[in-house]
Amino acid sequence: MGSSALILLLLCGIAFAGAGILLSLAVAKTKKNAQKGETYECGIPTTGTSWIQFNVGYYLFALIFLVFDVELVFMYPWATVVKEIGMPALFEILVFMFILFMGLLYAWKKGALEWK
């Protein structure tokens, strides 16, 4: 079973989720009223839309993550061959990791790792 398995799984996922939801549409009794369409906020009418400019402390994390994740992907090819290459690979990755680690420490000291 080759890469067609991936397509099969994709189709399976779509078919299963779609079929489930459509089946419930067909089977379930629907009776719409205004209250049912309201946004749930503990029984109190909601104030305005929630699609406003929103201050979350996580954009910084997303940025740091991007840096680290790209570096992480670089490590996969390295990891497969490190045993064969031996010591030189270790030194290379040490330098690489050292720089990354410094980056992390910098972010830490800068306070970028505090959720505000």
Binding site: S24, A28, K31, K36, G37, T49
Partner: peptide, 12 residues
Amino acid sequence: KLLLKEGLTPDS
């Protein structure tokens, strides 16, 4: 039970 429940979509 979940199958028989109404799959609501909020208006907004």
